[in-house]
Amino acid sequence: MLNCRQATQLCSEERDRSLSLMERIALRLHTLICDSCANFRRQMDFLAQTTRRFREGRRPDDDA
């Protein structure tokens, strides 16, 4: 069973590489029972969305 530290490492790594089937299952199981890591994973999505906006120059003051 993953602990939170390992789970968050996988939440980050899934942005950079394809996780193995076992890793995906372990992460899924962990986030089902751990709200904190489920939050962390959603926030990694949000962070990716934020950096994408930044690199495309789509910040609110850009359109002012």
Binding site: N3, C4, S36
Partner: peptide, 27 residues
């Protein structure tokens, strides 16, 4: 941020963020 057993410390547990997308439109 983590205890010895690798779980979040009480004060560093990630909270739920309310409507994060709306933040993207705020300077």
């Amino acid at each position: 941020l983590f205890e010895q057993d690798g779980h979040w410390t009480t004060q560093d547990k990630p909270h739920t963020w309310a409507d994060p997308e709306s933040a993207l439109s705020q300077k």
